[in-house]
Design a protein around this nucleic acid. Structure first.
Length: 467
RNA sequence: GGCGCCGUGGCCAAGUGGUAAGGCACGGGACUGCAAAUCCCUGAUCCCCGGUUCGAAUCCGGGCGGCGCCUCCA
């Protein structure tokens, strides 16, 4: 079964194959690093990682590029409002660079904890200013732009297919008239390619250009950097659904007009939102949760990954306490089951494992249906018809994609904690049990429980852990 | 207001024409001195109404409800 992916450009599931030499070239819209990424943002990272790992699992190679937006992303509409980086700098009394560095690192740490593969290229907008200027120059030369006191703008009416990608109703939108006005802008959909720094205002982030001192518009970076690293046309571009109407529409306009390639990108994939309390998670809604919060509340990062894998990426996902508790328990049990057969030797019957292997692969091939793939993993972990070595063979293979760390994760409560005092009490209790002095045994267990230590009697002797 | 998506057992969530995956919780059982852990078993006809069809959760129409986009946003 070939890989099929839902393409936003065509609104259909289409068979995907890399356009050259079995190498898939993928661009992922990364974070704007003025604040910590919340778990909704992180869903996009997990989604892109699922895509990459699925393609690798199929035997393709991958060139994955992710950008970091560290300049030019404005707070209001595409062309008005403040630059998010500059504002964060003013608010905290630090430099935009410091802030960008801090949150880029935090984001990378989160990705690592979530098991997201490192991209082949991680590119920062501020480190690609010349490339962005060059792209704007191409557009200026080809007559797609106009200049006004605010900056250099892309004239969307010069690109006939502008509304096609997102099926925009430009007339309807224009009459909606909630767009903040930029003096001299010709059409509501036109957007800034290069914004001029205000007269007399020294921005932290500004550069010289053929048109004057300023900074690049938000969309330019993605076109410039993706083309630089992946070529004038490439295979896949991912991001959140919110990017379809403006950001990706504008990227397409710029890129196709500058280089004349149509389609510029063959497959556009978009993930849906994580909802908290019935609403999308967004900083402007004030309902964000970050990975650190989850970890602090007792949900390890990979529990969130497992949570993510249980829903399809194109479906909004409800983030609730109950759902996280369920994910935590489920993840722990899967790890426990994997640990039981970890590195098990013995017979492996190909005819027994092949059907499961196929079902797992086909689930993923069907537009990355991770929930179904996870269900297959459960069948392997719990189903009764497989031998230990067979289970392990499949689980380790599946984990190349799921990345739940089934090869190393320790079941909860079985950490290698050392505490001589507790050990002594546990041993004392075990001795009491041996002599059937259950009153003493239970007293010791209660005492330990009082300090948050749970003792469990297993066939292999007592185990204890802190709750 | 316009466009789009969604509404599946207590919760999360697959399934998009042939009689409902999976996880969690609940209940029952096995095991245990007890407990925990573990394992096994058990539950839904798919928001409502009407239609198409031999047959619909799955298609069409109409309701009701939720969400998203239309403005920065994963």
């Amino acid at each position: 079964m070939p890989v099929q992916l839902f393409n936003t450009r065509t609104l259909k599931k289409e068979i995907f194959e890399p356009s050259e030499d079995g190498n898939a070239r993928i661009y992922t819209c990364g974070p704007t690093v003025y604040a910590a990424a919340h778990i909704g943002n992180l869903r996009s990272n997990l989604f892109a990682d699922l895509l990459v790992r699925t393609l690798l699992h199929r035997g393709y190679s991958v060139t994955h590029v992710i950008n970091v937006t560290d300049v030019g992303h404005l707070t209001d509409d595409a062309d008005a409002g403040e630059d998010k980086m500059e504002r964060a700098a003013v608010e905290t009394g630090r430099t935009a660079m410091e802030i960008a560095e801090q949150y880029t690192q935090l984001w990378l740490d989160d990705r690592e904890r979530l098991g997201c593969r490192l991209p082949d290229v991680l590119c920062r907008a501020t480190e690609h200013i010349p490339e962005q200027i060059a792209l704007v120059e191409r557009l200026v030369e080809r007559g797609f732009t106009y200049q006004i006191p605010d900056g250099v703008y892309f004239d969307t009416t010069k690109f006939p297919g502008y509304a096609d990608f997102a099926r925009l109703d430009l007339a309807g939108q224009a009459s909606g008239a909630r767009i903040a006005d930029v003096e001299g802008k010709r059409h509501a959909a036109d957007f800034a390619l290069w914004k001029f720094a205000e007269e007399g205002v020294q921005r932290q982030q500004e550069w010289g250009s053929p048109w004057g001192r300023g900074f690049p518009g938000w969309h330019v970076e993605c076109s410039a950097m993706s083309i630089q690293y992946l070529g004038e046309t490439f295979d896949l571009h991912t991001g959140g659904v919110d990017h379809i109407k403006v950001h990706h529409t504008n990227e397409i306009a710029q890129s196709e007009c500058a280089y004349g390639m149509r389609p510029w990108v063959r497959f556009w994939l978009h993930n849906e939102f994580v909802n908290l309390a019935g609403e999308k998670m967004a900083k402007s809604e004030g309902n964000v949760a970050v990975l650190q919060d989850l970890v602090r509340q007792g949900y390890p990062a990979l529990v969130y990954r497992y949570f993510f894998l249980q829903a399809h990426y194109r479906q909004q996902q409800s983030f609730t306490r109950d759902a996280m508790d369920a994910a935590k328990t489920g993840y722990d049990r899967l790890v426990r089951a994997a640990a039981e057969v970890r590195d098990a030797g013995g017979e492996v019957r190909e005819d027994a494992i092949e059907p499961l292997r196929v079902r797992f692969a086909e689930s993923l091939a069907d537009d990355l249906n991770a929930p179904r793939a996870v269900a297959v993993a459960w069948e392997v972990a719990r189903g009764s018809e497989l031998l230990p070595a067979e289970r392990w063979e499949l689980l380790r293979e599946f984990d190349q994609v799921l990345r739940l760390d089934l090869a190393n994760a320790t079941p909860a409560g079985e950490g290698a904690e050392n505490d001589p005092r507790v050990e002594a009490l546990v041993a004392e209790r075990e001795e009491a049990r041996r002599t059937r002095d259950f009153a003493t045994a239970d007293r010791i267990r209660d005492e330990l429980a009082a300090e948050g230590i749970v003792v469990k009697d297993t066939p292999n002797g007592p185990r204890w852990s802190r709750t």
